[in-house]
């Protein structure tokens, strides 16, 4: 397969997943902002959304003031922000258009329909429709797209590169979300297991569709430690780092065949940390440090993967 084709498949998947994750990040901020503490925490809540999902300097230059309206505009609809939902879907759809020979018609049609609808949404419409409804719609379209891939696309190399893009982007976002929220919630952690924790960490869990899973697994109050464990180490939690790296290593094995690639080694190394790691050790050396280190190794793994398969970077 042409490296460019693989690259376009990979980025198409990454951008759709990123759009979904931006919606999730906005959703968690939105929910938190509805808490009574909004006056005290409001700014940092919306500020952290920018920190996690976008580019702080770009936001600052374009808007200056952190508030709900500006942050949602920046992350959802701003065509100048390359990682807004709008831009992500646009780029994903551009890639899909160029890939029309390599993907199924249903895939293109699904993404194209999302793009057409999204490009008709402006701020007043978004507000009128309700923010929560918009976030749900973005997630729904992303789920639909994944479902279309699952039920129409041949399980060959094309599928593998889509899987890689999807899993790499997801791991990246979960780590950033966790790190960003953990940071912002630190001041209130003295009140472990308190009401505030319940709502704020609850919002994080809801944002990664893990609220119910949390209770099914732990049957206990929400604590940051358990949330971290769920999103980092639990292999059965679909958006966790461990689950993502299970997918990444499995997919790489299919792509590598008998050949030996450096990126496979790096993925294995990261996977081992998630597979054999212990939460107590992670907390001992610092969650923030662990996540920073994870994002760094995953970043260099992604670059190596592109070098190995896509002949770029």
């Amino acid at each position: 397969m042409l490296s460019r084709t693989a690259d376009q498949l990979y980025w198409m998947a990454r951008y759709v997943e990123r759009a979904e994750n931006i919606a999730r990040i906005l959703e968690v901020s939105y929910r938190m902002s509805l808490m009574p503490e909004e006056t005290r925490e409001g700014l940092s809540i919306w500020g952290s959304a920018v920190q996690i999902g976008g580019n702080w300097d770009e936001f600052d230059a374009a808007y200056g003031t952190v508030n709900r309206q500006n942050v949602i505009r920046h992350l959802a609809l701003d065509s100048n922000n390359t990682s807004s939902i709008y831009s992500c879907i646009q780029v994903a759809r551009e890639n899909a258009r160029a890939l029309r020979g390599s993907i199924t018609t249903e895939m293109f049609e699904s993404l194209n329909a999302t793009w057409i609808e999204l490009s008709g949404i402006d701020e007043p419409r978004l507000a009128a429709q309700g923010y929560q409804n918009f976030f749900d719609w973005v997630k729904e379209r992303s789920h639909l797209f994944r479902g279309v891939i699952d039920s129409t696309l041949l399980r060959d190399e094309s599928h593998h590169f889509i899987d890689l893009g999807d899993a790499i982007e997801r791991a990246d976002n979960t780590a950033r979300l966790l790190d960003g929220k953990y940071h912002i919630l630190l001041p209130s952690v003295e009140d472990v297991g308190g009401v505030l924790d319940y709502y704020q960490w609850g919002a994080v869990l809801r944002a990664v569709s893990a609220f119910r899973s949390y209770h099914r697994i732990y049957r206990n109050v929400i604590t940051p430690e358990r949330v971290a464990q769920l999103l980092i180490l639990r292999a059965d939690m679909p958006r966790s780092l461990h689950a993502s790296f299970n997918r990444i290593t499995d997919t790489l094995d299919l792509l590598c065949g008998t050949r030996i690639y450096e990126c496979r080694r790096q993925a294995g190394e990261i996977h081992a940390r998630l597979h054999f790691g212990r939460m107590s050790d992670i907390f001992k050396s610092g969650l923030h440090e662990f996540l920073t280190d994870f994002l760094k190794s995953q970043g260099s793994f992604a670059v190596q993967m592109q070098r190995d398969f896509l002949m770029i970077a």
Partner: peptide, 16 residues
Amino acid sequence: ADLFVADNAVFMRTTE
């Protein structure tokens, strides 16, 4: 951009 020249030959960049 899919093609490049090396060792007096033209190559295409593929995943393999």
